[in-house]
Structure formats: structure tokens, C-alpha cells
């Protein structure tokens, strides 16, 4: 077994087992951490395919940004674990059956010869930088979808703000700009009183 094949099976085994753990883990924080492991092993597989750009982006964006935020959300939410897993045992047989059918189907269909890959060969010579190639493609041939991806992000921003930003009349909040502009005379009233000479 070559080194490459060895690493391929290592990463794949970790990937599949951590993906299983994401589903079966009792604690949702653990599930998220297993998902991180999943992504890291997937990026390992991509490195083996010499797709270093995708591998690095996967780690930077998903593991570094998305999953960390996701972890915060999961930690802050009060999720009832028992309720979340309530139907797990009951639905397990059906789920396993569907999964098994799908695995068999995919094994039958996703054969290398169906994709014109009867003889396995190295992808790329290892001398080309696919980061550079992707950059070139994105800003030339794929310029139009790339711009629209930016529109999708803008829609995401508008959507998030429209769903969450609201002024509720019954909520009490402090307006910092008014707060720093406050003067002594707003808060303290000097009252002339006759002194009490008892």
C-alpha cells in the first residue's frame, strides 16, 4: 500500500466515523465538535487530491468561522437533550433501512467506469497551483456567477436584519448617545428651601 492510499483510508475512516458520531452523539456540543473533526478530515482528503485551496478554505471558513459561531449558538441555547433524541430509537430501524438502500444504490451506480475513470491516475502534476487557477477562473470566466454570489450575501444581510432587528415598544433599553450627552442639570435639581432651625 502506498503512502497516499494509507492516508486516504485513514482520513476516510475518521471522516465516516466522526460523521456517524455527529448523528448519534447525545450532547449537541459534542456533535458540533465531531463535525469539526469531519471537516478537518475532509480537508485532508482534498490535500491528497492536491486541491490545496479548497482544503485551506474549508478549514479557515468552516472550521475557523462557521463552526466556532455554531458552537457558541449551541452552547447558548437551552436545548433539551432528552426531547431532541426522543424519537431516535423508534425511528432508527426505518432510518437504517433507508440508509442501507441508499448505500447499495450508490455502490451500484457510482462505479469508476461510469465516470470514465477505469484507470486511476494522478490529478494534476503537482506543479500547477490551483489557487492561482481558481483565482483566474473566478475573475474571468466565472465573473457573472461570482458577482451574483455577492448578491446572495447582500440578500443574507438584509434578510438577517429584517428578521432580527425590531423595536419593541415594551422593551427597556439605554440609548448610549443620549446617555453620554447627559448634563448634571438633567439629573439633579437644586431646590431652594428655607433652612430648618430647630
Amino acid at each position: 500500500m502506498t503512502n497516499e492510499a494509507m492516508f486516504f483510508y485513514l482520513f476516510s475512516a475518521v471522516l465516516v466515523s466522526s460523521a456517524t458520531m455527529v448523528v448519534v452523539a447525545r450532547n449537541s456540543v459534542r456533535a458540533v465538535l465531531f463535525l469539526v473533526l469531519c471537516f478537518v478530515s475532509a480537508s485532508g482528503l482534498w490535500i491528497l487530491l492536491q486541491a490545496e485551496f479548497l482544503a485551506i478554505v474549508l478549514v479557515l471558513v468552516y472550521v475557523g468561522a462557521v463552526m466556532v459561531m455554531f458552537l457558541f449558538v449551541v452552547m447558548m441555547l437551552d436545548v433539551d437533550q432528552a426531547q431532541l433524541k426522543a424519537g431516535f430509537a423508534r425511528h432508527l430501524p426505518l432510518g437504517l433501512l433507508v440508509a442501507a438502500v441508499m448505500v447499495v444504490e450508490m455502490l451500484l451506480v457510482l462505479q469508476p467506469e461510469n465516470f470514465g475513470l477505469v484507470t486511476a491516475e494522478n490529478v494534476g502534476s503537482g506543479l500547477t497551483s490551483n489557487t492561482k487557477a481558481i483565482g483566474r477562473m473566478l475573475y474571468t470566466d466565472y465573473f457573472y456567477p461570482f458577482e451574483i454570489a455577492a448578491v446572495v450575501l447582500l440578500v443574507g444581510i438584509v434578510a438577517a436584519i429584517s428578521l432580527t432587528l425590531r423595536k419593541r415598544p415594551d422593551s427597556r433599553y439605554i440609548d448610549p448617545s443620549e446617555q453620554v450627552g447627559v448634563k448634571a442639570s438633567d439629573r439633579l435639581r437644586m431646590v431652594d428651601m428655607e433652612s430648618d432651625n430647630r
Binding site: 466565472y142 456567477p145 451574483i148 440578500v155
Partner: peptide, 25 residues
């Protein structure tokens, strides 16, 4: 006339719909 472009168009459209359905908060 390209699958990738098709997908980003679809996502732009769907994302707006998801938000609009929840418009009345």
C-alpha cells in the same frame, strides 16, 4: 445556461422567499 449560474440564481430567489414567509414576526 450554466448549472453554477443556475444554482446561485435559485439561491438568491429562495433566500428571499424564506425571509418573506417569516415577514410577520
Amino acid at each position: 445556461h450554466n448549472l453554477l449560474l443556475f444554482y446561485v440564481g435559485l439561491e438568491t430567489f429562495s433566500l428571499c422567499l424564506y425571509t418573506l414567509v417569516a415577514y410577520n414576526r
